[in-house]
């Protein structure tokens, strides 16, 4: 029950963040979060920063691109959405580490099943990626520029074929357990 309340709180906070357009509100929420578990944010600083930057680049770039043909680029607005993204990122990391997600989602069999599935899928990808990098390092005797290109191509290729294959396997497995038959 507790986990479900946390989930509800998290979802309402995200909802509030997307409807309230106020820097003060974002900053306040951010501050409360960070103070409530300082050591967690210290530990996760790098991870949060990384995902923030990734989202940020995508969002800011698409906004800039969108307004490129109009002359009214609103820097205040860019600041606002960036702040919002940062708050949501921190909130999400905080929520994910302080909640037992499968338990929070247990009200719906489908949700918790999907969660476990995507979680193991992600773990699987991370492991494959590090194996790929290591296998590459293992076979490089003399470093050359072209080797990096080979590795990048390989990563893209493997993930593409692997995703396709996994998607097929997963849907078969779900069907076999009576999931997709409706």
């Amino acid at each position: 029950m507790k986990e479900r309340i946390k989930l509800l709180l998290y979802l309402s906070a995200v909802l509030l963040l997307t409807i309230i357009h106020s820097e003060i509100f974002y900053l306040a929420l951010l501050l409360i979060l960070i103070i409530s578990d300082l050591s967690f944010f210290r530990r996760s600083f790098k991870r949060i920063l990384f995902s923030f930057i990734v989202f940020n680049v995508v969002i800011s770039l698409s906004y800039l691109l969108f307004t490129f043909f109009r002359s009214d680029i609103d820097t205040g607005y860019i600041l606002l959405i960036n702040l919002r993204v940062l708050t949501i990122t921190c909130l999400t990391f905080f929520f994910a580490s302080h909640t037992n997600l499968p338990l929070a989602l247990s009200f719906s069999e489908t949700f918790s099943y999907l969660f476990t599935l995507s979680y193991s899928q992600i773990q699987n990808y991370i492991r494959t990626y590090s194996d790929l990098k290591e296998a590459h390092a293992s076979r490089i005797i003399v470093r050359e520029k072209t080797h990096i290109k080979i590795l990048i191509e390989r990563v893209i290729n493997l993930f593409f074929t692997k995703s396709l294959y996994n998607a097929k396997e997963t849907s078969l497995a779900m069907r076999s357990r009576g999931f997709l038959d409706g």
Partner: peptide
Amino acid sequence: NPENRRSFRSSVVMLFQSPDVMLFN
């Protein structure tokens, strides 16, 4: 040191558990 790498990598090799990750040619 590139010379160390050359000497170690041409002497010690490993077959990974999943051969997929080793093939990139």
